[in-house]
């Protein structure tokens, strides 16, 4: 049985599901954005776990070092973190805009206002 071998992936999946739950079950828009952030961090952990080589070191070349973890996922995730913050900023500005128009950021209240019109 390979229980310890996949524990990182499973933890990442659990985090993903926590974020997913926040997105689908919470009506508050800021909470939804927070959920997306958690989901995103879980994907990062998943990727970086894949890059790890047992006994390897960080991919910075130096004397007497021969075994390195895979640098490619690191690069991809580095890019993804910055893009993630950009999208978070855009999402939050949408939230602010919605709040200015409707006076609330609760999903159901917005729907009620829409229905009342």
């Amino acid at each position: 049985m390979s229980f310890p071998g996949l524990i990182n992936s499973w933890a990442a999946m659990a985090l993903m599901m926590i974020g997913f739950y926040a997105v689908i079950a919470h009506g508050n828009l800021v909470k939804k954005v927070i959920g997306l952030n958690i989901f995103q961090a879980a994907v990062f952990i998943f990727y970086i776990s894949m890059a790890k080589v047992r006994g390897g070191t960080a991919p910075i070349l130096g004397d007497n070092l021969t075994l390195f973890s895979n640098p490619l996922p690191h690069v991809l995730i580095l890019t993804a973190i910055v893009v993630g913050v950009a999208t978070t900023a855009l999402g939050l500005s949408l939230v602010v805009r919605i709040r200015d128009t409707y006076g609330t950021i609760e999903d159901e209240e917005i729907r009620a206002i829409e229905a009342a019109e």
Binding site: V30, V33, I34, N37, A41, F44, I48, S49, A51, K52, V53, G56, T57, A58, P59, I60, F68, S69, P73, H74, I77, L78, I81, V82, V85, T88, A89, L92, V95, V96, R99, T104, I105
Partner: peptide
């Protein structure tokens, strides 16, 4: 997990800038 470059980006951008963005939003909404 040996991803030092990613770690400091996450610490600066994730823990720093994201938090500031969220706090800025909370100042404008409830």
């Amino acid at each position: 997990l040996d991803a030092v470059d990613v770690a400091f980006t996450e610490a600066a951008v994730g823990a720093g800038i994201s938090t500031v963005l969220f706090l800025g939003t909370l100042a404008l909404v409830a």
